[in-house]
Design a protein around this nucleic acid. Structure first.
Lengths: 160, 160
DNA sequence: TTACGTGCAAATAATTTGCAGTCCC
DNA sequence: GGGACTGCAAATTATTTGCACGTAA
């Protein structure tokens, strides 16, 4: 299996963790350090879930999905802990919450700036930030500023 | 109260209903006709809810909100019927569903092309379609075409 | 040791559904 | 009159929470 230089990406992601260079290369160690750096104890469950979440590239998943994966991976973890962990990770900036249809809540392991394709009933695909150019935006109301701009490109079957 | 030429807007909205000109001007009649034209019987509840929904310009609301309004307006309608009606209206193209935070489901009475400001915890405001220009989009995957592009501009308090 | 985490089961919250009675056409 | 619609209450589904026990620092 290829080495992973930085298990978790994002705006300020690597900084504290991969800067030291020497320790880099052990994904589990990186993950533990990353958890500590956001104030979360690297417990067995959190490390295991972090491994599932961040070990396979960018993903969009919901609590139930992660729960299934954990069971398949023989990681003993309760659904309640899945929910707690997803929320804690999100609050810590390791995940981003995505609202799609009001039913389930989805989480994006890619917290850097980017957009999404969305196919009804089939889920999400990332669009790199550079592939979408928003060249004109309205002025925010007084006292407000733009936090971020999310673009969702809804797709349908051609000639559907 | 000012006259309403077309109670319900949207891509194909007015056509069948306001074309005849003579009947136009009676919002209730227009609404009933509009309901019939999408295959929904204009029952007391649906007309009352349609009136609440479309009689006051563009709105973003959830089931609970509409339920409260109905009660305040002395419209006897059950919460179950609110949900059913919102879903039927959405399916008929009179409303658009908006996913914001995964918790509640919101509905937009404006089904024409436009975008949204979103302030965490404070809800939505419309952005006219002309105020947002997306000048570059990725190519859709094979066999797919773009249905529509939704832009959400997330705001936060300045210097928050 | 000791505060933080976890698991379980019960509690919420939003929404849907089954069915008997009601209403529009 | 007959099928579509509504209301109610019960059922579902997604998620959160309280509390006793376990575990990282």
């Amino acid at each position: 299996m290829a080495r992973m230089v930085s298990l978790i990406r994002g705006r300020e992601a690597g900084a504290a963790v991969t800067a030291g260079a020497n320790m880099a290369g052990c994904p589990v160690h990186d993950l533990k350090a990353r958890l500590r750096s956001v104030g979360l104890r690297p417990t067995r469950q959190r490390v295991a879930l972090g491994w599932l979440l961040f070990g396979r590239g960018d993903r969009h998943l919901c609590a139930e999905t992660l729960f299934d994966e954990a069971q398949r991976a023989r990681v003993p973890v309760s659904l309640a802990t899945i929910y707690n962990t997803l929320n804690q990770f999100t609050q810590a900036g390791l995940l981003r919450e995505i609202a799609l249809d009001g039913a389930r809540t989805y989480f994006d392991t890619n917290v850097s700036h980017h957009h999404h394709f969305f196919i009804e009933g089939q889920g999400l695909t990332d669009i790199p930030a550079r592939d979408v150019i928003v060249s004109s935006l309205p002025t925010p109301p007084d006292g407000m500023e733009i936090d971020r701009v999310d673009v969702v490109v809804r797709l349908r079957k051609k000639g559907g």
